[in-house]
Amino acid sequence: MSDTTLEVQGLSTHFLTRAGVVRAVEDISFSVGRGRVLGLVGESGSGKSVTGFSVIGLVDPPGQIVRGKILFQGRDLTKLDERELQDLRGNRIAMIFQDPMMTLNPVLRIDTQMIETVLAHDNVSREEARQRSRDALGMVGIPSPDERLVSYPHQFSGGMRQRVAIAIALLHRPDLIIADEPTTALDVTIQAQILAEVQKLAREVGTALIWITHDLSVIAGLADDIAVMYAGRIVESGPVAEVLDKPMHPYTHGLIGSVPSRNARGSRLRQIPGMTPSMLNLGPGCAFRARCARADAACAADPQATAPVAGRTLRCFHPQLEMTA
């Protein structure tokens, strides 16, 4: 088996709405290796979730993948039919959704929702499926899993529901997990426990992880690589330590500047001025230029992805190499 679990090349996912084309994801490329963690960061609406749904083949209409390749263990997922994707989903590729309150079916018991996942891909007895479901609940730190199995989602808090969703994702020890802000609803100790569990899985089973988040501090502790998204594009990517230590894109600088721990106590958090542009009918040119202090006439053209340093990518005409004070 090759060491690259997932390689995305030039992926574009557009929503063809009545009001126009929303280029939610535009020409992005990244890869995740076996047992490695890629942190996908960016502000709200930058296309992180759509990227995740594109990989697992569940983009809602009117969205569709218009260009690009999604190579999972060498196979292009955009070429697979629904039946082949169904075999991979929940089995080799799992996804944890952003909103834990909405992801579980309100009228089905937890055991029903877990056991069906086991049985969908493995030919085992119901009893064994139940056993595995219970073990998975234990793994994500749910106390008295036997009792919890026969509960309904509304009997759980948001954090508990998210842990159930994570347990479901772990059921088949997938090769790739796409985790969309999975720990935002959890308190800090549980968050740490789940991060540890997930890292263990990555190391032991070789699971590759795409970890979508707003929270740079989680990424710093967990991820090997980072990709920064802005308005549907990956504007900067590379090994996490390098990118966070020596960011080059003005937007990445802004993101790091707005993290509390990086600022001296008492000093005001720096904010990125301006607002995210509307993704509807976004014209040519760097999407960040309305908010960028370094923007000039050159930025009216599309910056192409470059490799300023081996292992890193950047989409900017005027990289900012020094840290802003």
């Binding site: 749904f53 697992i56 569940l58 809602d60 629904e82 169904q86 075999d87 991979l88 989903r89 929940g90 089995n91 799992a94 996804m95 959704f97 909103d99 909405m102 992801t103 579980l104 079916n105 309100p106 009228v107 089905l108 929702q113 069906e116 996942t117 969908a120 891909h121 969703a165 479901i168």
Partner: peptide, 26 residues
């Protein structure tokens, strides 16, 4: 369009089960 349907599909269960168990029961 609800998330629980998408999540059910993300688990890889059959489309029939999604409709006749998950959606129909609701």
């Amino acid at each position: 369009p609800m998330d629980y349907v998408k999540f059910a599909r993300a688990k890889g269960i059959s489309p029939n089960r999604v409709v006749f168990v998950h959606v129909l029961k609701n």
